[in-house]
């Protein structure tokens, strides 16, 4: 069994999710029910890189942060 830990950055809820080969990170979060259906979200690794479309099994045993899309806003 391959699992990934997803942490919702906005609500602090935390869920260990079993992921399947060929499943993207975003699909794994949607299937987990961590985010309400229809809500747009983005998943980042510890380095801050968006990993939405990466294979979820690449992150086995690691913790990923689920937050809003567009958090790479830079201007001031």
């Amino acid at each position: 069994m391959t699992t990934v830990n997803f942490r919702n950055a906005l609500t602090d809820s935390y869920q260990q999710v079993e992921v399947q080969p060929g499943q993207t990170v975003q699909q794994a979060v949607e299937a987990s029910g961590l985010i309400a259906a229809g809500n747009r979200f983005s998943v980042r690794d510890k380095d801050g890189q968006v990993v939405d479309n990466r294979d979820a099994t690449e992150f086995a045993g690691r913790t990923l942060s689920v937050g809003l899309q567009g958090d790479d806003v830079v201007g001031g």
Binding site: A9, D45, K46, D47, G48, G67, D71, V74
Partner: peptide
Amino acid sequence: GRCLVCWLGRAVARDPKRQS
């Protein structure tokens, strides 16, 4: 509270791009 690296990841340290 989360620090900015918690929010944005360590990669911000290596991002010199100015959105100006």
